[in-house]
Simulated scan of single mutants.
Amino acid sequence: MSMRTGSEPGTARSPLRMRLALALFGLTWATFGVIAFALTGRPGWTAACGVLMVLTLADAAIIVRHIRQGPHYQPGRDIPPYEPDHGGRGRFSR
């Protein structure tokens, strides 16, 4: 759990659509690499591009999942920031 300081922007959002575009760009080039290296008989490079293709596909799937989850609860402007710990004793310490 991260501490809310009150100085973060109230409308901050993760650039998920940009990340998805970059993942799809990488997926396109990895697929092109698999096809090109397979046709030229380079099995090592074909395998490397295949691994990269699987990783970018998994990344794109995770990003799509995050986009579909929608915005998560964030405290509004009417919620004051949490009081930071000033080095005092913990709640359960003796």
Rank of each mutant, 00 (worst) to 15 (best):
L27M: 13
R19Q: 12
A48S: 03
D59S: 14
A38W: 01
S7A: 06
E8V: 06
F25C: 04
R42Q: 05
H72T: 13
M53Y: 02
C49N: 15
L24Y: 06
L55I: 06
S2M: 14
L24F: 06
A30V: 00
V51T: 10
W45H: 09
A38C: 00
G41D: 02
M3R: 12
R13C: 09
A47Y: 05
W45I: 00
I67W: 05
L39S: 06
G6A: 03
W29Y: 13
T40Y: 04
G50Y: 03
T56G: 05
A36Y: 06
I35P: 01
R13N: 07
M3T: 11
D59N: 13
G70W: 05
R65Y: 12
T28H: 11
V54M: 09
T46W: 00
S2E: 15
I67A: 03
M3C: 07
R17E: 15
F32C: 05
V34Y: 00
L52V: 00
V51D: 12
R68T: 14
L39K: 07
S7D: 07
M1L: 08
R65E: 09
G50D: 04
M3D: 12
F25N: 12
P71T: 11
C49D: 11
W45R: 10
S7W: 02
G26T: 10
P43T: 00
F32P: 00
A30P: 02
G50H: 05
G44Q: 06
D59E: 15
G10H: 08
A61N: 10
G41F: 02
L39Q: 09
A38G: 10
T56L: 13
Q69C: 12
I62W: 13
G33T: 03
T28I: 01
A48F: 04
E8Q: 10
L57I: 06
A47C: 04
L57S: 14
S14I: 11
T31S: 08
V34Q: 01
L57C: 10
G10S: 09
T46F: 01
W29E: 10
L16G: 06
F32I: 09
T31I: 05
F32K: 09
G33F: 01
F25D: 13
V34N: 00
D59P: 01
W29Q: 09
R4F: 09
T40W: 05
A12L: 13
L52F: 00
G26E: 13
G33L: 01
R4E: 08
I67L: 11
I63R: 02
Q69T: 12
D59T: 15
T11V: 05
T28K: 14
F37D: 03
I63K: 02
M3P: 01
R4H: 09
L55Q: 11
Q69I: 04
V64Y: 03
A36S: 11
A61T: 14
T46G: 01
P9L: 02
W45L: 08
I62V: 15
H72D: 14
P15T: 07
M3A: 13
L39Y: 02
L20Y: 01
T11N: 12
R42W: 03
A38V: 00
A61E: 11
T28E: 14
M1Y: 10
R65C: 08
I62P: 02
G44K: 04
I67R: 04
S14Y: 09
V54T: 12
V51Q: 12
T40S: 09
M3L: 15
F32Q: 07
L24N: 11
T11S: 08
